[in-house]
Design a protein around this nucleic acid. Structure first.
Length: 278
DNA sequence: AACTGTCCCTGCAAGC
DNA sequence: TGCTTGCAGGGACAGT
């Protein structure tokens, strides 16, 4: 599933393949993916504009345009962004196609259509896109000192897993990385966040940054069913480093003593080792 | 404030 | 074999 490392990998690909390109033509298939505005708004907002930058906030891809507007893409569960030659055969679920000025196309592909594409005016972003306005700190940013995390955990009544998934606190962590981060930090998902001491908070801070950065280096995680790929269609390899996610019933590879347990927290499957996480 | 459950949607796997 | 059912999950939303 696309979380911060996958979205960041895609962002880097878009920075290479899309930035500086002009959009000559836009096609929208399934209108559900432009539901936040409309098919016409997306086509009008993108046609004959130039893409200036490729940015990311949490799991949101943001591409400022020379018109002053911003194209936002959110992949949700099954979204992909691919860049290919205009002669290439489009996937079945290529719901938005941008034709660029160098004979390439950008495809927004999404079988489950939970994802979305929208062009918005950043001057009104807080009105048009409240989720972005409410996003918390980016965990791999320079300006995320461990003191910031300390403040966040002390100020919440959430358990650690819901806390990590809360995009208004720390932006970009999803279900897979939350489990891997808590395992690396040796903390149980159901621990109350505010009860962890300073040393555990530093471990959590290290785990957040190290897991996310290691995954970016590995090109993200590609699971069997999710089919995450980067803009060139390449799979990631961080799934090979997963220690708890998808490993229920297996021996813990960290402590070699516990068995990975799968529980449900907040309606989401959650994995941890009851021996080495406390 | 923070929790739970439901919904959206398709593809795939398991089970009958 | 062919059907049904369950599950995957990010985030919006309603209800508690």
């Amino acid at each position: 599933m696309p979380e911060l490392p996958e979205v960041e990998t895609i962002r880097r690909g878009l920075a290479q393949r899309l930035v500086g390109r002009s959009v000559e033509h836009v096609e929208v298939g399934r209108e559900r993916v432009v539901r936040r505005t409309s098919k016409e708004a997306l086509i009008d907002g993108l046609t004959n504009t130039t893409i200036l930058r490729a940015e990311r906030r949490g799991k949101y891809l943001l591409m400022p345009l020379d018109s002053g507007n911003v194209m936002m893409i959110h992949l949700r569960m099954s979204g992909q962004v691919l860049v290919a030659g205009k002669e290439a055969e489009r996937p079945v679920h290529a719901h938005v196609v941008l034709s660029l000025d160098n004979d390439t196309e950008m495809w927004f592909v999404d079988p489950r259509t939970f994802g979305e594409v929208v062009v918005y005016d950043p001057a009104n972003a807080a009105i048009e896109l409240p989720p972005i306005a409410r996003l918390g700190v980016d965990p791999i940013a320079e300006d995320f000192p461990r003191s910031h995390l300390r403040q966040l955990v002390r100020a919440t009544n959430q358990k650690l897993k819901p806390f990590l998934l809360d995009q208004t606190k720390v932006a970009g962590i999803g279900n897979i990385y939350a489990d891997e981060i808590l395992h690396r930090a040796r903390l149980r998902p159901d621990r109350s966040a505010k009860t962890i001491d300073a040393a555990a908070t530093w471990r959590l801070h290290d785990a957040i940054r190290n897991i996310l950065n290691d995954s970016i280096k590995a090109g993200g995680s590609t699971l069997g069913d999710a089919q995450y790929v980067d803009v060139e269609g390449e799979v990631g390899s961080f799934q090979n480093e997963h220690r708890v996610y998808g490993r229920a019933g297996q021996r813990c590879s960290t402590c070699a003593r516990g068995w990975i347990r799968r529980t449900i927290a907040g309606g989401r499957s959650t994995h941890h080792c009851p021996v080495c996480q406390h």
